[in-house]
């Protein structure tokens, strides 16, 4: 039986479905990520001495920082699920393409992160009075998430197999996501004025985000099997 394209996608979806199912029972990932984000936002408010103007000015940067930090918690959790009871061994013993495992994990983590972003966007609209509910902003969030999760699943699959386990992930992943935050925060910030920017103005950052997505996904698909197989 040769693995076909359709079985690649159905396997990836099966693995993502399993993660969603687990989340349906425990609600662990979403509650941890949302609580963490909430605390971070409130903490920043306090740190900025409840100076709402200052907070508003950094709101888009803060939004991305919160997503990335909360994202590491979600990534750690979705990877830990495979570590417990050595469930990963059964995935590796199954007659499936390793990249389908990677795709499945990217899919489920992306869904969790996007759900978190929806909540965060609403939160930021309420707290900082920012016009985040705009289709281009949501698109930027979506594109940025793909690249971040693509790199994140790859790195988390490594870090979870080390002695340091979950503490290592932010140290490894956050520097790698800096070239993503730079254009993403900038493109988001461009939409924070009553007047929407011309596409030409945000074209470069959006292209950079898409390039990041493409490169990290390529890296993930070409190297993932080196990480899970021995």
């Amino acid at each position: 039986m040769k693995p076909t394209t359709s079985s690649f996608f159905s396997t990836a979806w099966t693995i993502a479905w399993k993660d969603l199912q687990i989340e349906k029972h425990t609600r662990q990932i979403m509650s941890v990520m949302v609580m963490f984000s909430l605390v971070t936002v409130v903490m920043f408010n306090f740190a900025l001495e409840t100076n709402l103007d200052a907070a508003r000015n950094v709101a888009t940067g803060l939004l991305w920082a919160t997503i990335l930090l909360a994202g590491t918690l979600g990534l750690n959790r979705t990877m830990a699920v495979e570590r417990e009871n050595q469930a990963m061994d059964t995935l590796l013993m199954a007659p499936i393409n390793r990249n389908a495992i990677y795709a499945g994990k990217v899919l489920s983590t992306t869904i969790f992160t996007l759900a978190l972003e929806l909540i965060l966007v609403l939160l930021f609209i309420v707290f900082f009075n920012k016009p985040l509910w705009r289709p281009p902003v949501l698109l930027i969030l979506f594109l940025g998430t793909i690249g971040y999760v693509a790199a994140g699943v790859l790195i988390a699959s490594m870090s979870i197999q080390t002695r340091a386990r979950d503490v290592l992930l932010p140290v490894l992943l956050l520097p790698l996501s800096l070239p993503l935050v730079l254009p993403a925060a900038m493109a988001t910030a461009a939409y924070m004025f009553p007047q929407q920017p011309l596409f030409a103005e945000v074209q470069t950052p959006i292209m950079l985000i898409m390039l990041y997505d493409a490169l990290m996904l390529t890296a993930g698909f070409t190297t993932y099997h080196y990480i899970v197989e021995s």
Binding site: S7, S10, T11, T14, I15, W17, K18, Q21, I22, H25, T26, V81, E84, N85, Q86, A87, D89, T90, L91, M93, A94, P95, I96
Partner: peptide, 28 residues
């Protein structure tokens, strides 16, 4: 190949039925 180990090799947070359904789908 089938493997039984002292490790459960199952997902603790899935039900018995969901666990088996998951593997049935993996093996198509």
């Amino acid at each position: 190949l089938g493997m039984v180990s002292h490790q459960a090799l199952l997902y603790g947070d899935l039900t018995a039925g969901e666990n088996l359904t998951f593997f049935a789908r993996l093996y198509e």
